[in-house]
């Protein structure tokens, strides 16, 4: 339909909404089945011996099949974090929220998730709590759906 934008120029309002069926494959499938049991799994590369979370089918560096499944800890240390004040189209959470790279005990890389469980609107509180190296532990949703949100967030200990 012909309408005008905020600058008064004529525009067509259009939308493309497309449903997808994105295959989990066996590795994601098992990872999320384990997540439903409140267990976080990585896989170990037989060549470089790194344990990467989430579990992978192959090592991105060595290009060999990952063999061994390794359960890592539900706790770890904050390696990096950012507090986001902006809402994005389709974003699953309302700002403010803290995204973080967390070094889980037993893993050789960092795990991307939220840190929460305290008042994120309180800037001073966030400043006091959120530091590099702070210990955090996974807080789980009661009802599991087999997706990354089965972990609600990681809470500072």
């Amino acid at each position: 339909m012909l309408t005008v934008n905020k600058r008064g120029h004529p525009i067509l309002e259009a939308e493309a909404s497309i449903p997808y069926e994105l295959a989990y494959g066996p590795t994601w499938h098992r990872f999320f089945e384990e997540l439903k049991q409140e267990k976080i799994f990585g896989t170990r590369c037989p060549k470089c011996e790194r344990v990467l979370v989430p579990a992978r089918t192959f090592c991105p560096r060595c290009f060999v099949d990952m063999g061994q499944w390794v359960q890592v800890s539900n706790a770890g240390t904050v390696a990096n974090w950012a507090i986001c004040n902006l809402a994005f189209f389709g974003a699953p959470f309302k700002p403010p929220f803290i995204t973080s790279l967390i070094k889980l005990d037993g893993a050789d890389n960092t795990f991307f998730h939220l840190v929460g469980g305290f008042d994120l609107e309180d800037v001073n509180l966030v400043g006091r709590i959120m530091k590099r190296g702070v210990r955090v532990e996974a807080v789980w949703e009661r009802t599991k759906k087999g997706c990354i949100f089965d972990i609600k967030y990681f809470e500072p200990l």
Binding site: G90, T99, F149
Partner: peptide
């Protein structure tokens, strides 16, 4: 743009946390 940027991340694990480009580039 930021919605598109978030969809550049795979949907299983990274996408929900991507928060467009600024979220990633702040770290």
């Amino acid at each position: 743009a930021q919605a598109t940027m978030s969809t550049v991340a795979e949907p299983f694990y990274q996408r929900p946390f991507a928060a467009g480009a600024p979220g990633m580039y702040a770290m």
